[in-house]
Nucleic acid binder design. Structure first.
Length: 499
RNA sequence: GCUCCGGUGGUGUAGCCCGGCCAAUCAUACGGGACUCUCGAUUCCGUGACCCGGGUUCAAAUCCCGGCCGGAGCACCA
C-alpha cells in the first residue's frame, strides 16, 4: 500500500534522463565535443553539446571542447565561430573544462606520425588519388607500402619542406589492405594543402586528417567516452589501428543516427552559408535558419532545447522530428512568464459609432500576465484596428466582442461601419467572435520576423518596455521583442518564437 | 556494388542484452467535452504501434534464420 503511494509521487516529476553510460565511473569520465567551426552551432551541434555535456555532469566528469579545424580549404573554419561555439555551449549550461584547437597543435601530430613511420606502421605514399583507389578496391598493397621507414621519413621531410605539390604525397596508416570493409584500408593521415589557415596562417602546409588528429587527441586528453553521430562510426575502426600500434586503450563509443527536422529539411551548414552569401538569409541568426543563435534570437530557452534532445535519447536509428516538440517544451517554460499584448496583423481601421463618453470609460484594463497578474491599459477609442483575417469572418449584422472592451455590431462591411452594441460580454462569450483590437491612439507599427514569412501590423505601445523579452501576442503567437527602430516610424521589430 | 547499422502508434521514445508481470511506457500530435473575455494555458475523455515470413519455446516486441524497407561509410571533408 505504501509503495503504491510512493510510486505515484515519483510519477509526476519524471525528467528526461539519459541512460547510464557503460563503464562509467563517477569522477573519472571525460567527454568531448568536437565540432568543426566552419559555421556556428546548429540544432545538430546542440545534440552533441547536450548529450556529452550532460553525461559529463551526471558523472562529475570533465568536458573537453575540441575544434577539429584541420582542413583550411574544404571545411574552412570561420574565425568568429570559435567564440560562438563557446558562447552557445555556455548558453546551454555547460562549461568546457578545456578548449583545444587542433590547428594549434599540429606539431604534436607530426611527432606521433613520425613515430608511426619509424615503427613501420605508417608510410609515405606517392600514388595518385585514383591510382590508390584501384589498389584499395582490389585489396592490393601499393608499391610504397613497404618502403623502408627511412625512405618514408625522407619523403615526409620533403613534404614538410614544400618539395611536393598538393596531391603528390600523403602519409597513410597501415591497416589491412584485405580488410573486408574497403573504407578501412590504409587511410590517409596527412596531406598537403597550400592554403592559409584562419587561425594559424601559413604556418603549415601539411595537415592531418580528422581521423588522425582525433585519434591522437582523444588519447592525449584521456577521453573515456565518445558519443557522436553514426557517420563517424568507421572512424573508430580506422583509429583503432593507431591505438593498437601505440598500445593505447580506445574510449567507449556510442553513436546516434541522423536527425532530420521537418521544418528545416536538409539545411546544412554549407548550404546555409551559400544562401547567406546569396542574400536569401540575412545572416546566421536569421529566424529561418536552424542555428542556435537564431533560436536564441527567436526567444527559445536553452532548457527547452535541452529537454527536447534528451527526450530523443541516443538511438542509432535515423529520426525525423517536428519542431512542434520543441515548441511544446518551450511553451511550458515561457507561457507563465510572457506578458500578453495585442498585435493586429494586416490592420483594418474601423470606426464605431456610439462609444464615446459612455459611462465615463476612458481606459480599458487588460490582464498582463496569467500568473503574475498585473494589467495594461488601452484607450477606449471609437477608432480601432482589427485584423483583416478577423474581419473576413464576419457578416453584416454580426455582433463582435472586442476583447475586454465592448461589443460592436457590423453594420456595413464595405464601408467598415460598426455600431456600439453593449459593454457586457454575455452573448459574445461562446464562439469565435471574441477578437483582439487596438485603439489608434495606442498603436505602433510592428513587423514580426518569422520562419515562413514576415508579418506586419500594429502593436500596443507598451511593448517598448519588453525589449529583449518574449511576450505573447494574443491569438497570434509567442514573439520576442527585439527592438524599436529609431526613425520617425518607430516601428517595433519582433521575432516569431512559436505558436 | 562492397562493408556496417537500424526498423515499437502520425512523430519521437521506454521495454529488447537477462523470453513470461507488455491485451506494451511516456511525450507530442490528432479527435471530442469542460474551463478561460487568446487560435495560449489548464482539465477530462478518446484514437492510435511491436516491418513481413518462418523457426526455437509451455511462452517471443524480446532469441535464431530469411526477406523487405530505411540509413551510414567506401574522400588527400568533418
Amino acid at each position: 500500500m505504501e509503495k503504491y503511494g510512493e510510486e505515484r509521487e515519483e510519477r509526476k516529476e519524471k525528467e528526461a534522463i539519459l541512460p547510464p553510460l557503460p563503464y562509467a565511473e563517477k569522477g573519472k569520465v571525460i567527454m568531448r565535443f568536437a565540432p568543426n567551426p566552419n559555421g556556428p552551432a546548429t540544432l545538430g551541434s546542440a545534440r552533441g553539446m547536450i548529450v556529452n555535456g550532460e553525461y559529463a555532469k551526471i558523472y562529475d566528469g570533465k568536458l573537453v571542447l575540441r575544434f577539429d579545424d584541420t582542413d583550411p580549404r574544404t571545411k574552412r573554419p570561420m574565425l568568429e565561430a570559435y567564440e560562438w561555439y563557446i558562447e552557445d555551449l555556455a548558453w546551454l549550461g555547460y562549461r568546457a573544462d578545456e578548449v583545444v584547437y587542433a590547428s594549434k597543435r599540429i606539431s604534436v601530430y607530426y611527432e606521433h606520425v613520425e613515430k608511426l613511420i619509424e615503427m613501420g606502421h605508417a608510410y609515405a605514399c606517392l600514388c595518385k588519388k585514383d591510382e590508390f583507389k584501384r589498389y584499395r578496391d582490389s585489396g592490393i598493397e601499393c608499391p610504397h607500402r613497404n618502403l623502408p621507414p627511412e625512405e618514408s621519413l625522407d619523403i615526409w621531410e620533403k613534404m614538410l619542406g614544400g618539395e611536393f605539390e598538393e596531391g603528390e604525397a600523403v602519409i597513410r596508416i597501415k591497416t589491412d589492405m584485405k580488410h573486408k570493409d574497403p573504407a578501412i584500408r590504409d587511410w590517409v593521415a596527412f596531406r598537403i594543402i597550400f592554403e592559409s589557415h584562419p587561425l594559424v596562417g601559413d604556418k603549415y602546409i601539411v595537415y592531418p586528417t580528422l581521423d588522425f588528429e582525433s585519434a591522437i587527441e582523444d588519447h592525449l586528453h584521456g577521453i573515456t567516452h565518445i558519443i557522436r553521430g553514426k557517420d563517424l562510426i568507421d572512424s573508430e575502426r580506422r583509429q583503432k589501428y593507431i591505438y593498437k600500434y601505440f598500445g593505447w586503450e580506445y574510449p567507449v563509443t556510442k553513436h546516434w543516427g541522423r536527425i532530420k527536422i521537418h521544418e528545416f529539411g536538409k539545411l546544412s551548414t554549407s548550404s546555409i552559408k551559400k544562401e547567406i552569401e546569396k542574400g536569401t538569409f540575412t545572416g546566421w541568426d536569421d529566424p529561418r535558419v536552424p542555428t542556435l543563435r537564431a533560436l536564441r534570437r527567436r526567444g527559445f530557452e536553452s532548457e527547452a532545447i535541452k529537454k527536447f534532445f534528451l527526450s530523443l535519447g541516443v538511438g542509432e536509428n535515423d529520426i525525423s522530428v517536428s519542431m512542434k516538440n520543441l515548441y511544446a517544451e518551450n511553451r511550458k517554460l515561457i507561457d507563465e512568464k510572457a506578458n500578453r499584448y495585442f498585435f493586429v496583423e494586416s490592420p483594418v481601421l474601423i470606426e464605431i459609432s456610439g462609444v464615446e463618453g459612455v459611462e465615463g470609460k476612458n481606459n480599458i484594463k487588460l490582464p498582463l500576465n496569467p500568473v503574475k497578474g498585473g494589467f495594461r491599459t488601452l484607450k477606449a477609442s471609437n477608432r480601432v484596428y482589427i485584423s483583416e483575417n478577423d474581419l473576413k469572418r464576419f457578416e453584416e449584422g454580426n455582433v463582435i466582442r472586442l476583447k475586454e472592451f465592448c461589443n460592436i455590431r457590423l453594420i456595413d462591411k464595405r464601408n467598415l461601419e460598426f455600431k456600439f452594441a453593449g459593454w457586457k460580454i454575455e452573448g459574445a462569450k461562446k464562439g469565435k467572435n471574441i477578437i483582439h483590437w487596438l485603439p489608434v491612439e495606442d498603436s505602433m507599427d510592428c513587423v514580426v520576423l518569422a520562419p515562413e514569412r514576415d508579418h506586419s501590423g500594429k502593436v500596443e505601445r507598451a511593448v517598448v518596455n519588453e525589449v529583449g523579452k518574449v511576450v505573447q501576442f494574443e491569438r497570434f503567437a509567442f514573439c520576442r521583442i527585439e527592438g524599436v527602430a529609431r526613425n520617425e516610424s518607430s516601428e517595433v521589430r519582433a521575432v516569431y518564437t512559436h505558436p
